[in-house]
Simulated scan of single mutants.
Amino acid sequence: MHRQRFYTLTASCPDRTGIVAKVSSFFAAHNGWILETALHADDAAGRYFMRIEVRADSLPFMLAELRERFRPIAEELEMDWKITDSAVKKRVVLLVSKQEHCLYDLLARWQSKELDIEIPCIISNHDTFRGFVEWHGIPFHHIPVTPDNKAAAYAEVQRLFEEVKGDAMVLARYMQILSPELCAAFPGQILNIHHSFLPSFVGAKPYHQAYERGVKLIGATCHYVTADLDQGPIIDQDVIRIDHSDAVEDMVRYGKDIEKTVLARGLRYHLEDRVLVHGNKTVVFR
């Protein structure tokens, strides 16, 4: 990560010749100092992906004007695109249930500035972590979820997220299935950590499923949330080797370490605009 302020362009478009030339020429024409470039051509999809960081102080205009000046090029190339500012901290809302390991890890990374974000609030379907969260100076919202109140509960989650102007919602072992309406409201903004190496062992108790199947690897997956359970675009994954001597309890203990790491890494990629979604797949410029 660069110390100086920079703008990040992320874009995808139909593949063709001259894409890089047009974009780089645009920045060069305005004395833009490119700090980092990542490019990928997907031959099967016929699509081109890019991520470019440019020093903010090298350009003669601010972000709003940069976007307006770049728009004609984006339209010509039929781009899905955005430009973000490294000086603007992302606002991340955490959702948690009763398991604490991912919550503790993310708050430690936030407190140490390893994750340079704002956490405007934390939401839970249990009151378990209220004291811990409020000790950190973060507002805590208890929104119980029952079979009878799900629509109202998730409407309240959406209201809070919009009220605090959230940029990302992170399910830090939030053990409820979000409503399709909530998923549809924030596509590509809700991240989940699933405690298996997807697409294996979706749904509840994946370590128990893995134990019964006798697998030799267990893992964790950070993915975007969609209305289809545990089927969203995958951001990051990792695994650890196990054997016949490991009980379910051992697998749960090993898995917690992987879950923390994978969620933090996937969230960082998302916050740094390194993840481009196309269909149900991602391009991750690490």
Rank of each mutant, 00 (worst) to 15 (best):
Y254Q: 11
V202M: 15
I119V: 14
D273H: 15
V170E: 01
R268Q: 12
V145S: 00
E181T: 15
I73C: 11
S112Q: 03
V54R: 05
L107R: 02
R47K: 15
Q111F: 10
S200C: 12
A185D: 04
D230Y: 10
H40D: 07
A172L: 06
C13A: 09
A227L: 13
T8A: 03
P14A: 09
G232H: 01
Q209M: 04
C222E: 05
Q158M: 14
I193C: 00
Y174R: 08
L267Y: 02
E114F: 08
V20G: 08
S179W: 05
R109P: 08
K205I: 10
Q158S: 15
M62D: 14
S112F: 08
S86T: 04
R51M: 08
T146C: 07
L107N: 01
K165H: 15
E68Q: 12
A56D: 01
H136C: 11
L191G: 01
D238Q: 11
V248K: 05
Q99N: 10
F129W: 06
E134A: 01
S24M: 14
I218H: 06
L103Y: 04
A11E: 07
D148I: 04
I235V: 15
H142G: 02
G214W: 04
F201I: 12
I119L: 04
G214L: 07
H208Q: 15
K22V: 01
L59S: 06
Y104F: 12
V92W: 02
P60L: 06
R286W: 11
A21F: 14
M175V: 02
L276R: 08
L263Q: 08
G232E: 00
L276K: 04
L229S: 07
A168D: 09
K90G: 03
E76W: 06
G232F: 01
P199W: 04
V170K: 00
G232W: 01
Y224F: 14
V54C: 04
N125L: 08
V96T: 00
D42E: 12
V284A: 06
L171V: 00
M79Q: 05
D273I: 12
P187I: 09
H136V: 08
A74C: 12
I177M: 14
S179L: 10
Y174F: 15
V252W: 11
N125R: 03
L106S: 00
S179H: 09
Y7H: 07
L95T: 09
R213P: 07
L160P: 02
Q4G: 13
E100W: 11
K22W: 00
A45T: 00
E53F: 13
L95V: 04
L178H: 03
E65T: 10
I258S: 03
Q158F: 10
S25C: 13
Y254D: 06
I218C: 04
S124A: 05
F140A: 00
E181S: 14
M169A: 09
V277E: 07
D57P: 05
Y174C: 11
Y254V: 10
R268P: 02
A264E: 10
A185I: 06
N280P: 05
L77G: 04
L107H: 01
V202Y: 12
D228H: 12
W135R: 15
